[in-house]
Nucleic acid binder design. Structure first.
Lengths: 214, 214
DNA sequence: AAATGCTTGTGACAAATGTTACAAACCCTA
DNA sequence: TAGGGTTTGTAACATTTGTCACAAGCATTT
């Protein structure tokens, strides 16, 4: 798909020591995932660890009643902490992972992840860093849900979306936003309309354009 | 304080291999913490890893506006995942740890924790298990905050308290409950009164007694 | 352009939670 | 037992969010 195969590995050269990079190149499998496809669902067991080369993965919680709540995004050069854990303990997942864009990822057999914790300090550090970052993000998420009103959460959500996609034009329906924030469509429409009245954004069909002073 | 010093170490004998237990005994320092004392506050850096021998530690999030939210409890034989991470990466804490009861804990120098990840498979597994369990608990917490009403959250809270203390009589003010659930006192009084009317519990001054069909 | 299905706008109302204020009950200490 | 601080009960009201219903707008297909 791309010209230089080593590019995939090089995405991680700032984190990993040379020997690990070589090992990674030898052992990991490159996979392509289409935007919108669910890579991991609640209850599934994880068989491989994903290292994201390009694209973005949305990680969300689905509760028993089928309600969704966005937790965080996995971006280029990152991996998913829950995955590490589920792998190492062979437990089934409590979260869902969906490709937010077309994505490329390196898949690593579970056993290697465990070996490498002992073998490569840079791998151990990468894993622990990833875990801590996710912890921090989830706690931020708890904070928001517990203490912030929906208008503020919506603004943060839109900012983050804009960040991930690198664009101020977001292709989203009100329904989808509602789902990801764990509320319903009418609430979102209402709040978006207020933001539009305040000249923070413009609403189009299936599309929202953030203005400068958003 | 107790008669057999080895008891402290033996709390962990089901998780740790013999060599690790010996190393633990040689390197860890036993500490006593009084109920109610804050062991770790937001912004502090962690200098030692606590392994809980007896008692219980309450871990909660304090946000910028000083609002609190209970995340989970660390119980006997357990440790705190956030602590692992903060230690290994020398970052400052985003959470608060308070002794819920008088507690005994083994304190481990940060450097050892890192070494042991490589040296002892059972330590590595213990750390990863702890991290995964905390993740799961925090996600349960997100679920509750996002999707459950306060009445249900209150019931779960009281059940857990009763579990931790091993008693159906809880010494709690409505104010404290409100703080830990991130809401205000009047709301709690209201809901407790409803539960009392439903014959689920009895309200006394600074005390709540859960009835059989709670 | 008519039909269809999805998306958005909006009013009306219900339910849950937050806020303020104040009275009553309880508990400790003088 | 009287007083003072803390804790609990409750009314009244504001705000936020959830829910239902239905109209209007938009896009695609025929």
């Amino acid at each position: 798909m791309k010209s230089q195969p080593l590019n995939y590995i090089n995405k991680f050269s700032e984190f990993f020591e040379p020997a690990l990079l070589a090992d990674l190149e030898a052992s990991a499998m490159l996979m392509e995932v289409k935007s919108g496809s669910t890579m991991l669902n609640v209850g599934q067991t994880i068989r491989a660890i994903p290292l994201l080369v390009s694209g973005a993965i949305k990680v969300s919680r689905m509760n028993d009643e089928g309600q969704e709540l966005l937790l965080y995004y996995v971006k280029e050069g990152e991996s998913c902490a829950m995955t590490f854990n589920c792998c190492m303990l062979s437990q089934s997942s409590v979260i869902k992972g969906t490709a937010e864009e077309d994505s490329l990822l390196l898949c690593l057999p579970v056993m290697l992840m465990d070996e490498w914790m002992v073998k490569y300090p840079s791998w151990k550090k990468y894993v622990m860093t990833t875990i801590l970052n996710r912890f921090t993000e989830i706690i931020k998420c708890v904070d928001e849900v517990a203490f912030k009103n929906m208008d503020e959460r919506l603004v943060n959500y839109l900012k983050e979306k804009s960040n991930i996609t690198g664009s101020s034009v977001l292709n989203l329906t009100h329904q989808k936003i509602g789902d990801e924030l764990g509320t319903n469509r009418v609430v979102i429409s209402r709040l978006l309309k207020k933001l539009e009245n305040d000249k923070k954004l413009l609403i189009y069909n299936k599309q929202i354009k953030l203005l400068k002073d958003f």
